[in-house]
Design a binder for these strands. Sequence first.
DNA 1: TTAGTTAGATTAACCGGTTAGTCAAACTGT
DNA 2: ACAGTTTGACTAACCGGTTAATCTAACTAA
Lengths: 238, 238
Amino acid sequence: MPRIQHHRADQTRDRILHAAIREFSEHGLAGARTGAIAGAARVNKALLYYYFRDKESLYAAALEEVAGKVAGDAIAVLELDCSPGERLLRFTLQHFDRNLSRQGFQALMQQEMVRFRAGRSNAMQVIAKNAFEPMWDRAMNLVEEGIGSGELCSVDPMQMMYAALGANVFYFLSAPMVKLIAAINPLDPAAMASRRTTAIEYLGQTIFTDRRRGARLAKAVLAAMPMPENALPERKTA
Amino acid sequence: MPRIQHHRADQTRDRILHAAIREFSEHGLAGARTGAIAGAARVNKALLYYYFRDKESLYAAALEEVAGKVAGDAIAVLELDCSPGERLLRFTLQHFDRNLSRQGFQALMQQEMVRFRAGRSNAMQVIAKNAFEPMWDRAMNLVEEGIGSGELCSVDPMQMMYAALGANVFYFLSAPMVKLIAAINPLDPAAMASRRTTAIEYLGQTIFTDRRRGARLAKAVLAAMPMPENALPERKTA
DNA sequence: TTAGTTAGATTAACCGGTTAGTCAAACTGT
DNA sequence: ACAGTTTGACTAACCGGTTAATCTAACTAA
């Protein structure tokens, strides 16, 4: 269903889609208001139903858009022209930065995970097949390759991923709570920069057979990928 | 506010509260239906408004109930009569098991984190102060104590927590997706048991100055705390 | 004991507002 | 003229919340 739009304006469809992404991110499927989406896209509500079958289809489309972009970016990093270990460090750092600058997107994905676990969600299958499975395969191959060449420690690749990505997710997920009960604010740029550095350096020292090399690569990757400016305001792509 | 109810039945209030916990867990605040809650509690809808001001108050009450129970259990472990390191291992293992057997509760908390981050949620402050701050303080003191006595490595206590708890959260959060794209099912009892063991043993080898001692304590804790039976069906407390 | 009283607990029926979704008319570029 | 787009107006269903009435059981006074 590529939807061959000939002339001008199917940018309208895009405006709707991105307005939907934001609205769904902030309010969830049930909480989102179609009127609000239309308003944000500067479009009449009925137009939503011209481009999308119903609210849930729009939700699914928004989800696929996000997942596609996320997975695409990730795959680009996984196919970079450098050693498996370095690519893994970059992949993890990118994941942190995505949590940082695209908190709405992450929220959308997390909400969908809950929704899917609760039994609903038919969109999940599509996303998994088209977006995340290719990414997943590449990541796993990468780890195997790294272990095979002797660059990486021979531990279960999954455990490695859980530790690295889990810490990122949990950092931002718990941030609002931590801010309330601890002396620090995890969303403060300085705190984030610190955490970002620590996480990658820690990973560098954990997964490489040659720890010296891991530390050096971690530093190099951190230098090559500066932390994104954006913190909270969350503007859209387009 | 103990609510001095003289006679019989204020178990009704409890039925409503637990029905609400489940409904809100599965559908979120906006998605939950008051009618469904009343139905599940075998009670007329109007009775919800007899016991609770409105839907949001009920939601807040459900959240506080969950948070109180979670924090209470955690504090009990943190005050056990053993070394700080062992208590930390137990605390982390308990966290894993809570994710395992109370997935609805965790979903509720995670959704509220998202909600709070998006700006709404007045309940969060209360929960943080009454439930999580005491828990947090005890955990931090514990880590300091452990480092002071030389049992634990002298790393930032927070980084330690992020790695340990983050991996747990991410494991269950990503499980539905992983099930779709990988050959394994992370929610299969065998897989969970494996992950559970690995996580604690890994922590044991990471945070102790004496790694031998860490490994031994991890094994002991795993033996002392068997994995809960329950996997998915999710029955309530009562 | 008991008839009368009171307060809390529970319900059926209903209401007003909101929301997803529709439609026919109007506009636009070619 | 006309297919592709865009819109204001409309509706049917739903949902949170209210109301007035009923029921239950403990309390009270003779």
